[in-house]
Amino acid sequence: MTFFNFIVYVVIGVSAVLSYFVLANWAHDYLVGKFSKKNLQDSIFRPWIFMAPALIILLVYLIYPVSETIRLSFFDNYGREFTGVSNYVWAMNDSDFRQSILNNFLWLIVVPTTCTFLGLTIATLADRVWWGVFAKTLIFMPMAISFVGASVIWKFVYEYRGAGNDQIGILNAIIVYFGGDPHAWIAIPFWNNFFLMVIMIWIQTGLAMVIFSAALRAIPEETLEAARIDGASEVRIFFYIIIPFLSETIVVIWTTITILVLKVFDIVLAMTNGQWGTEVLANLMFDWMFRGGGDSGRGSTIALFIMLGVIPIMIWNLRRFKMEQER
């Protein structure tokens, strides 16, 4: 029955959209034809009819939330009383917030760079060995796992049991096997950030690798042969011919992962919930917004800081996109 309902809804939805375009277009032609002598093809209203649904969706789901978040950031925890910049003053003085900014920077520096580097290296090397396809499949696999799922897996990897007990975490098990002492890895301040980053690198390297593999295939073989005849060594070809060929791909991958990293949330929530100095902005925002009664003012303020971080990269991306279009 539910499947039947589903079909009905799809049909209703699709026909509603279709009839909007057909009817609105027809109404436009009728009205414009009646009041204007100009050619119908030149009408300035028609584009707006076709863009309207997209614009409305954009307005409701993007413009409104952003403006509302900005508004809330100047109000108290219930969003009732205007409090000026007090939320921002609080943020500047809050140690958790400062820690989050610092950690986000750390993530930003380490994760995109490592993913891009590993992805490119693996994609290049995998093409040269017969078991490359198998290796690539293995490395791509984590892409299919959600961040929370991956965190659960890695929680087992880092799992700690007191000395003398059987270690069920593989990392500690290996260390103990070779005679070392077990550690509660995710509770070691500063370094634990890197242990969390490993999870995202583990997931995102697959993406980078797959895209680089495709891009590498697109490099014409004759160009590489020309370089070989010119006397270039394989290393030189890689740095002087292949890397410039891939520069666009590198930028795309790097920015994609950078934006993802700015929004990092699930991993931190699932692994440490921001304890032991691993707090990040998204998790802090979630904390203030929805926990302990909720503080929409402070939550919104933190959300705006995340947006502030993403915007420059988005602008840069859009510009680059525009430049590519113009070429």
């Binding site: 004759e222 160009t223 042969e225 020309a226 005849i229 002087y240 011919i241 410039p244 060929f245 520069s247």
Partner: peptide
């Protein structure tokens, strides 16, 4: 060698 596709270094 001169190739059919020219094989110049585009960058």
């Amino acid at each position: 060698m001169v190739f059919q596709s020219y094989a110049l270094y585009p960058h």
